[in-house]
Design a protein around this nucleic acid. Structure first.
Lengths: 260, 260
DNA sequence: GTAGGGTGCG
DNA sequence: CGCACCCTAC
Protein backbone atom coordinates (compact mmCIF):
# COMPACT_ATOMS: atom_id res chain seq x y z
CA UNK A 1 0.00 0.00 0.00
CA UNK A 2 1.59 3.24 -1.22
CA UNK A 3 0.26 6.57 0.01
CA UNK A 4 1.39 9.90 -1.41
CA UNK A 5 0.97 13.49 -0.20
CA UNK A 6 1.53 16.43 -2.56
CA UNK A 7 0.87 20.15 -2.36
CA UNK A 8 0.00 20.58 -6.02
CA UNK A 9 -0.59 24.36 -6.17
CA UNK A 10 -3.65 24.17 -8.44
CA UNK A 11 -4.70 20.71 -9.52
CA UNK A 12 -6.26 22.06 -12.71
CA UNK A 13 -3.18 23.92 -13.86
CA UNK A 14 -0.97 20.93 -13.09
CA UNK A 15 -3.19 18.02 -14.03
CA UNK A 16 -0.68 16.77 -16.63
CA UNK A 17 2.16 16.32 -14.15
CA UNK A 18 -0.21 14.70 -11.67
CA UNK A 19 -1.19 12.19 -14.33
CA UNK A 20 2.45 11.61 -15.22
CA UNK A 21 3.33 11.02 -11.58
CA UNK A 22 0.45 8.60 -11.06
CA UNK A 23 1.42 6.64 -14.16
CA UNK A 24 5.05 6.43 -13.09
CA UNK A 25 4.64 5.74 -9.36
CA UNK A 26 1.16 4.22 -9.23
CA UNK A 27 0.38 4.91 -5.59
CA UNK A 28 -2.81 3.48 -4.08
CA UNK A 29 -3.84 6.74 -2.49
CA UNK A 30 -3.00 10.35 -3.33
CA UNK A 31 -3.56 13.19 -0.86
CA UNK A 32 -3.49 16.65 -2.41
CA UNK A 33 -3.28 20.11 -0.88
CA UNK A 34 -3.82 23.51 -2.47
CA UNK A 35 -6.09 22.15 -5.14
CA UNK A 36 -7.47 25.70 -5.63
CA UNK A 37 -10.73 24.53 -7.12
CA UNK A 38 -14.33 24.15 -6.07
CA UNK A 39 -15.57 20.58 -5.96
CA UNK A 40 -17.73 21.03 -9.06
CA UNK A 41 -14.71 21.93 -11.17
CA UNK A 42 -12.36 19.27 -9.79
CA UNK A 43 -10.85 17.29 -12.72
CA UNK A 44 -12.23 14.00 -11.41
CA UNK A 45 -12.38 12.34 -14.83
CA UNK A 46 -8.60 12.43 -15.21
CA UNK A 47 -8.20 10.55 -11.93
CA UNK A 48 -10.96 8.05 -12.62
CA UNK A 49 -9.33 7.24 -15.94
CA UNK A 50 -6.21 6.21 -14.03
CA UNK A 51 -8.14 4.01 -11.63
CA UNK A 52 -8.65 6.48 -8.80
CA UNK A 53 -12.38 5.99 -8.61
CA UNK A 54 -12.76 6.89 -4.94
CA UNK A 55 -12.58 10.66 -4.69
CA UNK A 56 -13.16 12.76 -1.60
CA UNK A 57 -13.05 16.52 -2.00
CA UNK A 58 -12.98 19.57 0.19
CA UNK A 59 -12.44 22.49 -2.12
CA UNK A 60 -13.08 26.18 -2.18
CA UNK A 61 -12.73 29.09 -4.60
CA UNK A 62 -9.22 30.38 -5.34
CA UNK A 63 -7.31 29.25 -2.26
CA UNK A 64 -6.54 26.16 -0.22
CA UNK A 65 -8.55 23.04 -0.99
CA UNK A 66 -7.66 19.43 -0.21
CA UNK A 67 -8.55 16.08 -1.79
CA UNK A 68 -8.01 12.36 -1.39
CA UNK A 69 -7.97 10.16 -4.49
CA UNK A 70 -7.87 6.40 -4.06
CA UNK A 71 -7.87 3.12 -5.90
CA UNK A 72 -9.19 1.42 -2.76
CA UNK A 73 -12.51 2.21 -1.11
CA UNK A 74 -12.74 5.22 1.19
CA UNK A 75 -15.35 5.44 3.91
CA UNK A 76 -16.34 7.85 6.64
CA UNK A 77 -15.00 10.97 5.04
CA UNK A 78 -15.16 14.14 7.08
CA UNK A 79 -14.09 17.75 6.74
CA UNK A 80 -12.96 19.65 9.79
CA UNK A 81 -12.87 23.42 10.11
CA UNK A 82 -10.95 23.95 13.33
CA UNK A 83 -11.02 27.71 13.07
CA UNK A 84 -14.60 27.93 11.82
CA UNK A 85 -13.53 30.27 9.07
CA UNK A 86 -14.73 28.14 6.16
CA UNK A 87 -11.21 27.58 4.85
CA UNK A 88 -10.89 24.15 3.20
CA UNK A 89 -7.80 22.82 4.95
CA UNK A 90 -8.71 19.31 6.06
CA UNK A 91 -10.25 16.15 4.75
CA UNK A 92 -10.18 12.78 6.49
CA UNK A 93 -11.17 9.28 5.44
CA UNK A 94 -11.17 5.78 6.79
CA UNK A 95 -9.97 2.74 4.84
CA UNK A 96 -11.60 -0.67 4.94
CA UNK A 97 -8.83 -1.91 7.25
CA UNK A 98 -9.77 0.71 9.83
CA UNK A 99 -6.85 3.05 9.27
CA UNK A 100 -7.69 6.72 8.99
CA UNK A 101 -5.94 9.18 6.72
CA UNK A 102 -6.06 12.82 7.78
CA UNK A 103 -4.97 15.26 5.08
CA UNK A 104 -4.17 18.79 6.25
CA UNK A 105 -3.02 22.07 4.73
CA UNK A 106 -1.67 24.23 7.55
CA UNK A 107 -1.81 28.04 6.93
CA UNK A 108 1.40 29.49 5.54
CA UNK A 109 1.47 32.22 8.16
CA UNK A 110 2.42 35.34 6.22
CA UNK A 111 5.80 37.00 6.18
CA UNK A 112 6.40 38.48 9.60
CA UNK A 113 6.81 35.99 12.47
CA UNK A 114 4.96 38.15 14.97
CA UNK A 115 1.32 37.53 15.82
CA UNK A 116 0.85 41.10 16.97
CA UNK A 117 1.71 42.68 13.64
CA UNK A 118 0.79 39.75 11.36
CA UNK A 119 -2.57 38.11 12.06
CA UNK A 120 -1.78 35.33 9.60
CA UNK A 121 1.05 34.19 11.83
CA UNK A 122 -1.32 34.07 14.79
CA UNK A 123 -3.81 32.11 12.74
CA UNK A 124 -1.12 29.57 11.88
CA UNK A 125 -0.14 29.03 15.51
CA UNK A 126 -3.79 28.84 16.52
CA UNK A 127 -4.44 26.28 13.76
CA UNK A 128 -1.67 24.00 15.01
CA UNK A 129 -2.90 24.41 18.57
CA UNK A 130 -6.42 23.34 17.62
CA UNK A 131 -5.00 20.43 15.66
CA UNK A 132 -3.15 19.46 18.84
CA UNK A 133 -6.35 19.32 20.87
CA UNK A 134 -7.97 17.25 18.12
CA UNK A 135 -4.93 14.97 17.86
CA UNK A 136 -5.12 14.10 21.56
CA UNK A 137 -8.60 12.72 21.06
CA UNK A 138 -7.73 10.41 18.17
CA UNK A 139 -8.05 6.71 18.88
CA UNK A 140 -8.01 5.04 15.46
CA UNK A 141 -4.76 4.02 13.80
CA UNK A 142 -4.03 7.14 11.82
CA UNK A 143 -1.78 8.51 9.09
CA UNK A 144 -1.58 12.31 9.24
CA UNK A 145 -0.25 13.85 6.06
CA UNK A 146 0.01 17.18 4.38
CA UNK A 147 1.69 20.50 3.99
CA UNK A 148 2.38 21.52 7.58
CA UNK A 149 4.24 24.65 6.44
CA UNK A 150 6.76 24.09 9.24
CA UNK A 151 10.25 22.65 8.90
CA UNK A 152 11.09 21.65 12.47
CA UNK A 153 14.68 20.38 12.40
CA UNK A 154 17.85 22.27 11.50
CA UNK A 155 18.48 19.76 8.73
CA UNK A 156 14.95 20.33 7.42
CA UNK A 157 16.09 23.66 5.94
CA UNK A 158 18.96 24.78 3.76
CA UNK A 159 20.25 27.07 6.49
CA UNK A 160 19.19 26.79 10.08
CA UNK A 161 20.68 30.05 11.29
CA UNK A 162 19.55 31.97 8.21
CA UNK A 163 15.94 30.83 8.69
CA UNK A 164 15.56 31.15 12.46
CA UNK A 165 13.50 34.29 11.98
CA UNK A 166 11.80 33.19 8.75
CA UNK A 167 8.23 31.91 8.97
CA UNK A 168 8.23 28.08 8.72
CA UNK A 169 11.34 27.60 10.85
CA UNK A 170 10.92 29.95 13.83
CA UNK A 171 11.25 28.42 17.31
CA UNK A 172 7.69 29.35 18.20
CA UNK A 173 6.36 27.38 15.23
CA UNK A 174 8.68 24.47 15.88
CA UNK A 175 7.53 24.41 19.51
CA UNK A 176 3.90 24.33 18.39
CA UNK A 177 4.64 21.46 16.02
CA UNK A 178 6.52 19.61 18.74
CA UNK A 179 3.48 19.86 21.00
CA UNK A 180 1.31 18.49 18.19
CA UNK A 181 3.73 15.62 17.78
CA UNK A 182 3.73 14.89 21.52
CA UNK A 183 -0.06 14.88 21.63
CA UNK A 184 -0.25 11.31 20.34
CA UNK A 185 2.07 8.44 19.45
CA UNK A 186 3.09 10.21 16.23
CA UNK A 187 6.09 8.93 14.34
CA UNK A 188 7.62 11.34 11.81
CA UNK A 189 8.01 8.89 8.93
CA UNK A 190 10.28 11.15 6.92
CA UNK A 191 12.83 11.30 9.71
CA UNK A 192 12.16 7.69 10.72
CA UNK A 193 13.50 6.55 7.36
CA UNK A 194 15.91 9.44 6.74
CA UNK A 195 17.20 10.40 10.19
CA UNK A 196 18.58 13.83 10.94
CA UNK A 197 20.98 15.39 10.24
CA UNK A 198 20.48 14.10 6.70
CA UNK A 199 19.32 16.78 4.28
CA UNK A 200 15.59 16.28 3.54
CA UNK A 201 13.60 18.90 1.64
CA UNK A 202 10.17 18.89 0.02
CA UNK A 203 9.76 22.52 -1.09
CA UNK A 204 11.80 25.01 -3.07
CA UNK A 205 10.52 28.55 -3.61
CA UNK A 206 9.52 29.68 -7.07
CA UNK A 207 11.36 32.91 -6.38
CA UNK A 208 14.80 31.48 -7.08
CA UNK A 209 14.51 30.21 -10.64
CA UNK A 210 17.78 28.30 -10.35
CA UNK A 211 16.60 26.38 -7.29
CA UNK A 212 18.95 23.49 -8.01
CA UNK A 213 21.98 25.75 -7.87
CA UNK A 214 21.60 27.05 -4.33
CA UNK A 215 19.30 24.19 -3.22
CA UNK A 216 17.53 26.43 -0.71
CA UNK A 217 14.86 23.89 0.16
CA UNK A 218 12.78 23.25 3.23
CA UNK A 219 10.91 20.18 4.54
CA UNK A 220 7.38 21.56 4.83
CA UNK A 221 5.51 18.38 3.89
CA UNK A 222 5.14 15.56 6.34
CA UNK A 223 3.68 12.15 7.03
CA UNK A 224 3.11 11.20 10.63
CA UNK A 225 1.78 7.83 11.74
CA UNK A 226 0.44 6.65 15.05
CA UNK A 227 2.52 3.84 16.49
CA UNK A 228 0.52 0.92 15.12
CA UNK A 229 0.52 2.42 11.64
CA UNK A 230 4.20 3.35 11.78
CA UNK A 231 5.01 -0.25 12.59
CA UNK A 232 3.78 -1.24 9.14
CA UNK A 233 5.70 1.42 7.24
CA UNK A 234 8.48 -0.02 5.11
CA UNK A 235 9.86 2.98 3.23
CA UNK A 236 9.53 6.70 2.72
CA UNK A 237 10.37 8.52 -0.52
CA UNK A 238 10.73 12.20 -1.41
CA UNK A 239 10.34 12.69 -5.17
CA UNK A 240 12.77 15.58 -5.55
CA UNK A 241 12.90 15.08 -9.29
CA UNK A 242 9.35 16.38 -9.69
CA UNK A 243 10.59 19.88 -8.84
CA UNK A 244 12.38 19.92 -12.21
CA UNK A 245 9.40 18.80 -14.27
CA UNK A 246 7.70 21.17 -16.67
CA UNK A 247 5.34 23.57 -14.89
CA UNK A 248 6.23 22.13 -11.46
CA UNK A 249 4.60 22.72 -8.11
CA UNK A 250 6.92 24.35 -5.60
CA UNK A 251 6.33 21.24 -3.45
CA UNK A 252 7.28 17.71 -4.43
CA UNK A 253 5.31 14.53 -3.61
CA UNK A 254 6.30 12.38 -0.65
CA UNK A 255 5.33 8.74 -0.25
CA UNK A 256 5.22 6.07 2.41
CA UNK A 257 4.86 2.42 1.56
CA UNK A 258 3.16 0.13 4.04
CA UNK A 259 3.23 -3.62 4.35
CA UNK A 260 -0.12 -5.02 3.28
CA UNK B 1 9.39 42.18 -53.60
CA UNK B 2 6.82 40.59 -51.26
CA UNK B 3 5.14 42.73 -48.61
CA UNK B 4 2.91 41.25 -45.89
CA UNK B 5 0.47 42.84 -43.44
CA UNK B 6 -0.73 40.95 -40.37
CA UNK B 7 -2.67 41.87 -37.26
CA UNK B 8 -0.83 39.53 -34.93
CA UNK B 9 -2.70 40.15 -31.65
CA UNK B 10 0.40 40.16 -29.43
CA UNK B 11 3.68 39.57 -31.19
CA UNK B 12 5.24 38.11 -28.04
CA UNK B 13 2.52 35.54 -27.46
CA UNK B 14 2.54 34.54 -31.11
CA UNK B 15 6.22 34.80 -31.97
CA UNK B 16 6.40 31.11 -32.94
CA UNK B 17 3.77 31.33 -35.65
CA UNK B 18 5.30 34.56 -36.94
CA UNK B 19 8.62 32.75 -37.29
CA UNK B 20 6.92 29.81 -38.97
CA UNK B 21 5.19 32.13 -41.43
CA UNK B 22 8.39 34.00 -42.25
CA UNK B 23 10.25 30.75 -42.84
CA UNK B 24 7.51 29.40 -45.11
CA UNK B 25 6.65 32.55 -47.09
CA UNK B 26 9.85 34.57 -46.79
CA UNK B 27 8.43 38.03 -47.51
CA UNK B 28 10.80 40.96 -47.85
CA UNK B 29 8.80 43.18 -45.53
CA UNK B 30 6.36 42.40 -42.73
CA UNK B 31 3.94 44.99 -41.34
CA UNK B 32 2.41 44.07 -38.01
CA UNK B 33 -0.51 45.53 -36.08
CA UNK B 34 -1.59 44.93 -32.49
CA UNK B 35 1.89 44.03 -31.35
CA UNK B 36 0.82 44.85 -27.78
CA UNK B 37 4.33 45.49 -26.55
CA UNK B 38 6.53 48.42 -25.70
CA UNK B 39 9.53 48.87 -27.97
CA UNK B 40 11.97 47.75 -25.29
CA UNK B 41 10.28 44.36 -25.02
CA UNK B 42 9.79 43.77 -28.74
CA UNK B 43 11.23 40.32 -29.68
CA UNK B 44 13.64 41.85 -32.18
CA UNK B 45 16.19 39.04 -31.91
CA UNK B 46 13.78 36.50 -33.38
CA UNK B 47 13.30 38.67 -36.46
CA UNK B 48 16.96 39.51 -36.87
CA UNK B 49 17.78 35.81 -36.77
CA UNK B 50 15.53 35.36 -39.81
CA UNK B 51 17.19 38.18 -41.70
CA UNK B 52 14.80 41.01 -40.81
CA UNK B 53 17.52 43.33 -39.59
CA UNK B 54 15.67 46.57 -40.32
CA UNK B 55 13.12 47.05 -37.60
CA UNK B 56 10.93 50.08 -37.06
CA UNK B 57 8.68 50.08 -34.01
CA UNK B 58 5.84 52.12 -32.62
CA UNK B 59 4.66 50.25 -29.58
CA UNK B 60 2.82 50.98 -26.38
CA UNK B 61 1.80 49.17 -23.22
CA UNK B 62 -1.02 46.62 -23.43
CA UNK B 63 -2.87 47.81 -26.52
CA UNK B 64 -2.35 48.62 -30.19
CA UNK B 65 1.25 48.90 -31.38
CA UNK B 66 2.56 48.60 -34.95
CA UNK B 67 5.87 47.53 -36.46
CA UNK B 68 7.63 47.13 -39.78
CA UNK B 69 10.27 44.41 -40.16
CA UNK B 70 12.35 44.29 -43.29
CA UNK B 71 15.16 42.50 -45.06
CA UNK B 72 15.77 45.60 -47.16
CA UNK B 73 16.80 48.98 -45.77
CA UNK B 74 14.13 51.25 -44.32
CA UNK B 75 14.60 54.99 -44.16
CA UNK B 76 12.63 58.00 -43.07
CA UNK B 77 10.45 56.26 -40.53
CA UNK B 78 7.76 58.34 -38.89
CA UNK B 79 4.97 57.80 -36.41
CA UNK B 80 1.76 59.76 -36.77
CA UNK B 81 -0.76 60.36 -34.02
CA UNK B 82 -3.71 61.81 -35.87
CA UNK B 83 -5.88 62.04 -32.79
CA UNK B 84 -3.10 63.21 -30.49
CA UNK B 85 -4.12 60.62 -27.93
CA UNK B 86 -0.78 58.80 -27.78
CA UNK B 87 -2.23 55.60 -29.21
CA UNK B 88 0.36 53.73 -31.32
CA UNK B 89 -1.62 53.14 -34.49
CA UNK B 90 0.69 54.20 -37.31
CA UNK B 91 4.23 53.75 -38.51
CA UNK B 92 5.51 54.74 -41.92
CA UNK B 93 8.80 54.13 -43.73
CA UNK B 94 10.40 54.84 -47.05
CA UNK B 95 12.30 52.26 -49.10
CA UNK B 96 15.45 52.96 -51.07
CA UNK B 97 13.43 52.99 -54.27
CA UNK B 98 11.35 55.89 -52.94
CA UNK B 99 8.18 53.94 -52.21
CA UNK B 100 6.59 54.62 -48.86
CA UNK B 101 4.84 52.03 -46.73
CA UNK B 102 2.22 53.32 -44.31
CA UNK B 103 1.12 50.78 -41.71
CA UNK B 104 -2.09 51.59 -39.83
CA UNK B 105 -4.25 50.05 -37.13
CA UNK B 106 -7.66 51.71 -37.28
CA UNK B 107 -9.65 51.67 -34.00
CA UNK B 108 -12.12 48.79 -33.71
CA UNK B 109 -14.93 51.13 -32.75
CA UNK B 110 -16.67 49.34 -29.90
CA UNK B 111 -19.92 47.45 -30.10
CA UNK B 112 -22.69 49.97 -30.70
CA UNK B 113 -22.62 51.75 -34.08
CA UNK B 114 -23.78 55.08 -32.65
CA UNK B 115 -21.33 57.85 -31.87
CA UNK B 116 -23.71 59.40 -29.37
CA UNK B 117 -23.86 56.40 -27.08
CA UNK B 118 -20.48 54.85 -27.96
CA UNK B 119 -17.52 57.25 -28.03
CA UNK B 120 -15.28 54.54 -29.49
CA UNK B 121 -17.41 54.52 -32.61
CA UNK B 122 -17.02 58.26 -32.92
CA UNK B 123 -13.28 57.91 -32.46
CA UNK B 124 -13.12 55.36 -35.26
CA UNK B 125 -14.97 57.62 -37.72
CA UNK B 126 -12.85 60.57 -36.66
CA UNK B 127 -9.68 58.52 -37.15
CA UNK B 128 -10.63 57.61 -40.73
CA UNK B 129 -11.57 61.23 -41.40
CA UNK B 130 -8.17 62.45 -40.24
CA UNK B 131 -6.49 59.75 -42.29
CA UNK B 132 -8.43 61.07 -45.27
CA UNK B 133 -7.09 64.60 -44.81
CA UNK B 134 -3.58 63.13 -44.49
CA UNK B 135 -4.07 60.89 -47.52
CA UNK B 136 -4.94 63.87 -49.74
CA UNK B 137 -1.56 65.39 -49.04
CA UNK B 138 0.49 62.32 -49.97
CA UNK B 139 2.68 62.71 -53.02
CA UNK B 140 5.13 59.78 -52.85
CA UNK B 141 4.29 56.41 -54.39
CA UNK B 142 2.70 54.73 -51.41
CA UNK B 143 1.50 51.37 -50.15
CA UNK B 144 -1.05 51.76 -47.34
CA UNK B 145 -1.57 48.58 -45.35
CA UNK B 146 -3.08 47.46 -42.13
CA UNK B 147 -6.10 46.47 -40.13
CA UNK B 148 -8.69 49.02 -41.22
CA UNK B 149 -11.39 47.33 -39.13
CA UNK B 150 -13.88 48.01 -41.91
CA UNK B 151 -15.16 45.50 -44.45
CA UNK B 152 -16.59 47.74 -47.18
CA UNK B 153 -18.17 45.43 -49.75
CA UNK B 154 -21.08 43.01 -49.34
CA UNK B 155 -18.79 40.16 -50.35
CA UNK B 156 -16.25 41.28 -47.74
CA UNK B 157 -18.44 39.77 -45.02
CA UNK B 158 -20.14 36.44 -44.51
CA UNK B 159 -23.57 38.08 -44.48
CA UNK B 160 -24.16 41.56 -45.79
CA UNK B 161 -27.70 41.93 -44.44
CA UNK B 162 -26.84 40.37 -41.11
CA UNK B 163 -23.94 42.79 -40.56
CA UNK B 164 -25.45 46.05 -41.79
CA UNK B 165 -25.82 47.21 -38.21
CA UNK B 166 -22.66 45.56 -36.91
CA UNK B 167 -19.57 47.72 -36.36
CA UNK B 168 -17.11 47.12 -39.24
CA UNK B 169 -19.77 46.91 -41.95
CA UNK B 170 -22.20 49.76 -41.23
CA UNK B 171 -22.93 52.18 -44.09
CA UNK B 172 -21.51 55.12 -42.15
CA UNK B 173 -18.15 53.34 -41.78
CA UNK B 174 -18.17 52.19 -45.39
CA UNK B 175 -18.89 55.75 -46.50
CA UNK B 176 -15.96 57.03 -44.45
CA UNK B 177 -13.68 54.39 -45.97
CA UNK B 178 -14.93 55.25 -49.46
CA UNK B 179 -14.00 58.89 -48.87
CA UNK B 180 -10.53 57.80 -47.74
CA UNK B 181 -10.19 55.73 -50.89
CA UNK B 182 -11.31 58.63 -53.09
CA UNK B 183 -8.83 60.99 -51.44
CA UNK B 184 -5.96 59.70 -53.59
CA UNK B 185 -5.35 57.31 -56.46
CA UNK B 186 -5.76 54.31 -54.14
CA UNK B 187 -6.20 50.89 -55.67
CA UNK B 188 -7.65 48.22 -53.36
CA UNK B 189 -5.18 45.45 -54.18
CA UNK B 190 -7.26 42.72 -52.55
CA UNK B 191 -10.19 43.43 -54.81
CA UNK B 192 -7.94 44.25 -57.77
CA UNK B 193 -6.73 40.67 -57.80
CA UNK B 194 -9.87 39.03 -56.36
CA UNK B 195 -12.74 41.12 -57.70
CA UNK B 196 -16.09 41.24 -55.96
CA UNK B 197 -18.37 39.43 -55.54
CA UNK B 198 -15.76 36.76 -54.78
CA UNK B 199 -15.61 35.81 -51.10
CA UNK B 200 -12.53 37.40 -49.49
CA UNK B 201 -12.04 37.34 -45.72
CA UNK B 202 -9.08 38.10 -43.47
CA UNK B 203 -10.58 37.83 -39.97
CA UNK B 204 -12.67 35.29 -38.10
CA UNK B 205 -13.76 35.94 -34.51
CA UNK B 206 -12.33 33.82 -31.72
CA UNK B 207 -15.85 33.49 -30.36
CA UNK B 208 -16.96 30.82 -32.80
CA UNK B 209 -14.52 28.00 -32.14
CA UNK B 210 -15.70 26.15 -35.25
CA UNK B 211 -14.97 29.15 -37.45
CA UNK B 212 -14.38 26.92 -40.49
CA UNK B 213 -17.87 25.44 -40.19
CA UNK B 214 -19.88 28.63 -40.43
CA UNK B 215 -17.08 30.62 -42.09
CA UNK B 216 -18.33 33.88 -40.63
CA UNK B 217 -15.36 35.92 -41.75
CA UNK B 218 -14.86 39.56 -42.64
CA UNK B 219 -12.27 41.39 -44.76
CA UNK B 220 -10.89 43.87 -42.25
CA UNK B 221 -7.28 43.90 -43.46
CA UNK B 222 -6.31 45.79 -46.56
CA UNK B 223 -3.53 46.85 -48.86
CA UNK B 224 -4.08 49.95 -50.91
CA UNK B 225 -1.55 51.27 -53.43
CA UNK B 226 -1.32 54.59 -55.22
CA UNK B 227 -1.56 54.20 -58.98
CA UNK B 228 2.15 53.98 -59.74
CA UNK B 229 2.67 51.38 -57.03
CA UNK B 230 -0.40 49.39 -58.05
CA UNK B 231 0.95 49.18 -61.57
CA UNK B 232 3.82 47.06 -60.28
CA UNK B 233 1.68 44.67 -58.23
CA UNK B 234 1.61 41.18 -59.66
CA UNK B 235 -0.38 39.18 -57.12
CA UNK B 236 -2.25 39.36 -53.83
CA UNK B 237 -2.57 36.46 -51.41
CA UNK B 238 -4.72 35.92 -48.29
CA UNK B 239 -3.19 33.21 -46.10
CA UNK B 240 -6.43 31.76 -44.76
CA UNK B 241 -4.65 28.65 -43.57
CA UNK B 242 -2.93 30.57 -40.80
CA UNK B 243 -6.26 30.89 -39.01
CA UNK B 244 -6.06 27.14 -38.29
CA UNK B 245 -2.55 27.17 -36.90
CA UNK B 246 -1.85 26.54 -33.25
CA UNK B 247 -2.53 29.62 -31.11
CA UNK B 248 -3.64 31.66 -34.13
CA UNK B 249 -4.33 35.34 -34.42
CA UNK B 250 -7.93 36.11 -35.30
CA UNK B 251 -6.53 37.86 -38.39
CA UNK B 252 -4.55 36.16 -41.17
CA UNK B 253 -1.64 37.66 -43.09
CA UNK B 254 -2.20 39.20 -46.50
CA UNK B 255 0.54 39.71 -49.06
CA UNK B 256 1.14 41.61 -52.27
CA UNK B 257 3.99 40.77 -54.58
CA UNK B 258 5.51 43.52 -56.69
CA UNK B 259 7.65 43.35 -59.79
CA UNK B 260 11.19 44.28 -58.90
C1' DG C 1 -12.39 33.32 -27.23
C1' DT C 2 -8.19 35.21 -26.02
C1' DA C 3 -4.86 38.62 -25.07
C1' DG C 4 -2.34 42.02 -21.15
C1' DG C 5 -2.20 43.70 -16.60
C1' DG C 6 -3.27 44.46 -11.82
C1' DT C 7 -4.17 42.33 -7.22
C1' DG C 8 -3.93 38.97 -3.51
C1' DC C 9 -1.61 35.28 -1.91
C1' DG C 10 2.04 32.18 -0.96
C1' DC D 1 8.15 33.33 -9.23
C1' DG D 2 3.72 32.08 -10.47
C1' DC D 3 -1.32 30.92 -9.73
C1' DA D 4 -6.45 32.50 -9.67
C1' DC D 5 -9.30 36.06 -10.22
C1' DC D 6 -11.07 40.64 -11.99
C1' DC D 7 -11.09 44.01 -15.49
C1' DT D 8 -10.67 45.76 -20.13
C1' DA D 9 -10.47 45.41 -24.98
C1' DC D 10 -11.05 43.25 -29.42
Amino acid sequence: MKIVSWNINSVRFRIEIVEQFLREVSPDILCLQETKVIDGDFPAAAFKALGYKHIMLHGQRMHHGVAILSRVPLVEDDRLDWQANREARHIGVRLANGMRIENVYVPAGGDVPDRDVNPKFGQKLDFVERMTAWSKSLTAPTLLVGDFNIAPLPSDVWGHKQLLNVVSHTPIEVDALDRLKASNTWVDLGRHFHPAPARLHTWWSYRSPDFTVNDRGRRLDHMWATAEVAAKAVSHTVFEGCRSWLKPSDHVPIMTEFAA
